[in-house]
Amino acid sequence: MALRVLLVHQSFPSQLIAVLEALERRDDVELAGIGMNPYARRGLRYRQYSPVPVAQTGDIVIDDLASKATLAAAAAAAARALSYDGFVPDVIVAHPGWGEALYLKDLFPRAKLVCYCEYYYLRSGGEVNFDPEFPPAPPEVLHRMRARNAITLASLEDADVCVAPTPWQKSTFPAMLHPKIEVFHEGVEVPPADNRATDRTASGGPSVSFVARHLEPHRGFHTFMRAVPRLLRADPSIQVSVIGSDRGGYGAPPSDGRTWKSVLLEELNGSIDETRVRFLGSVDRRRYLDALRHSDVHVYLTYPFVLSWSALETMGASKAMVVSDTAPVRDYFTDECAAVIDFFDSRALATRILSLLRNAKIRTSLGGHAREAFHDYELTRDHGRAAWERLVTSF
């Protein structure tokens, strides 16, 4: 009899892509998925759910809890609909962070529940109050953080086993849960290795790249932007490519409603030449990889928060990198495979970038060691698929 596996993620498949790809190749596994977004894939039974809108009270804690309760109910309704169609899961793999996993064991008490442990909000040591440039989080933000953790904890209590993608992300969860949390990354697709130390843009100058889903302080955008004028002054041929959306993000937007890009451009007061600094916005994968291929030095900065796939992809592509000395980065990056700098030090960032641009031998060495570390830490999608297949089929 086939093993029936249900995958649940708000933005399906997102981090569950590796388990989906691993199991869809097996004749002895039946797959179903639940998410908020439209999705279609051959061989997958998929149910899209739409939570019922709830009236806002103005209390950010109550509103956040109500939102997660509606997500839990909507995901449960989608799972129930699958069962009416004859799909009763043996194994459920779910991201618990938005509430979708909350009621699933009530519906399927015999199913094994695997929770993907992406992040547990910390009062200290995480992204909250990490950056002294911004005011401390007010009490209501801390209350909301604890409420979010409560939803996650309720799901993790039901979980038979959990998976965290990195050691630091596991460490954010309470110690009492650590025995049930395995650590392996879902992995990223490895871009083609490019060891050319003299990559150049169409203008012929050295190129620096910065990539984030959102251009915001959580990913060090403010530190990077403050380093850029020094780069442009030091070498009139340097070109900079910035990829990421102006809107949205993990942290709060500027209080006046502007984007962080507009705030920083105003702060830097004309010292950013936008003929040399290209803001590409959100781009498709082909254009992203093209920008990465033409980059001589890539910059990755982050608060103590979830490690970005782009950091690992750049690592696997043998690129010279300047990275922040923050906890999630230290899981995989050492001085041997990247130039490591203080997250807040824009002057040091500019200095390290310029030093690397002037030394092709060091760039090649860092890139080569980065790719070796990438494989040593088993960060490829192939490794992720194998790890997920081993876990899910072990029940």
Rank of each mutant, 00 (worst) to 15 (best):
S295D: 08
W309P: 01
L280M: 12
A291H: 15
W309Q: 02
R286C: 04
H294T: 14
A291G: 09
V299M: 05
S295G: 10
I272T: 05
A311W: 02
D273H: 08
R287M: 15
V277Y: 13
L307A: 03
V299P: 07
S295W: 08
P304H: 02
P304Y: 00
F279N: 06
F305L: 04
F305Y: 07
Y303D: 02
A311F: 00
H294F: 14
V299R: 09
H298Y: 06
T302M: 01
V277K: 12
S310C: 13
L307T: 01
A311N: 02
F279G: 07
V277H: 13
A311C: 04
Y303F: 03
S308R: 03
D273V: 09
L307P: 03
D296Q: 12
R278A: 11
F305M: 02
L289R: 15
R287E: 15
L307C: 03
S310I: 15
T302W: 01
T302N: 03
S310R: 13
R293Y: 14
T275L: 14
D284L: 07
D273G: 10
V306G: 00
G281K: 05
R285V: 10
Y288W: 13
L289Q: 14
H298L: 10
F279M: 05
D296C: 09
D284N: 13
L312F: 07
S308M: 02
I272F: 03
L280I: 00
V299H: 07
P304S: 02
P304G: 00
V277R: 13
A291I: 14
R293H: 15
V306F: 03
F305H: 04
T275W: 12
D273I: 10
R286M: 05
L312R: 11
